[in-house]
């Protein structure tokens, strides 16, 4: 309880700070203008969405390895939040693409990869909904969680060779040297922290809810019918 409460407090505080910095502290971009501020929402959503899918993969392996129900609950919760974040990322991306490139959508590697990623984990949620309930759904989903995550870099490679007109990433191996001003970098980092904390809080809440759902179901069999 206290862990979840403090995660809520942390993500709330960081979220307010990120919002304030996005609009009051970070300077307006010289080229892209005001629309560039959506960057502080869009990119953290993408990164944390990806983190969520990594959590799905790790917990899927853990579930198949140990058979622990808790791992499965975390994987399921992370997949739901990952799909939510990725959906928001695609929407904010389109909102940004229109003023920046003049189109809602382009077949750039990042966009293509994100879209396929989104489909992958929507399929994951569908598989869980349509498979026989209980362990079967959990095992199927775990296998897909592993296959899907291994697929991501391959999708990215294919999409990258295929077409390349997206601006370079600002973080990670493909980062451009000092692409952002220091104040922009700080805002960006605070924003990433805020979304990561939000993810952690949602994950803890959703996992706990799943645990209670299962427990309730069990009690129904123990004390209810039969």
């Amino acid at each position: 309880m206290t862990v979840r409460m403090s995660l809520l407090g942390l993500s709330g505080g960081l979220m307010l700070a990120a919002l304030g910095m996005t609009f009051l502290y970070a300077p307006t971009d010289a080229v892209l203008g005001i629309s560039q501020r959506i960057f502080y929402v869009h990119v953290p959503l993408a990164l944390v969405g990806f983190l969520a899918f990594a959590v799905v993969a790790v917990c899927s392996i853990g579930y198949l390895w140990k058979g622990s129900e808790r791992m499965d609950n975390v994987a399921y919760a992370a997949a739901e939040i990952g799909v939510l974040f990725t959906s928001l990322m695609l929407i904010t991306g389109m909102l940004w693409a229109k003023p920046a490139w003049g189109v809602w959508w382009s077949l750039s590697p990042q966009l293509t990869t994100s879209l396929i990623l989104w489909f992958l984990y929507v399929a994951y949620l569908m598989l869980r909904a349509y498979a026989p309930p209980g362990e079967t759904a959990a095992r199927y989903a775990a296998v897909l969680g592993i296959i899907g995550f291994i697929d991501v870099p391959i999708v990215y490679m294919a999409a990258r060779w295929w077409r390349d007109l997206h601006p370079n990433k600002v973080l990670g191996p493909l980062a451009e040297e000092s692409a952002l001003e220091p104040s922009m970098q700080i805002t960006f980092l605070v924003s990433i922290l805020a979304f990561t904390a939000l993810f952690a809080w949602l994950l803890a809440e959703r996992t706990e809810l799943r645990r209670q759902e299962t427990q309730l179901e069990r009690m129904r069999y123990t004390y209810g019918q039969a």
């Binding site: 399929a123 598989l127 498979a131 899907g148 697929d151 999708v155 294919a158």
Partner: peptide
Amino acid sequence: MAVNTRAREILLPVLFFPVAAPVII
């Protein structure tokens, strides 16, 4: 997997296409 699920004819392509996307491209 799909053979044991509801809506199996439609679930197979939903699972298959995103994963096989790099091969198709």
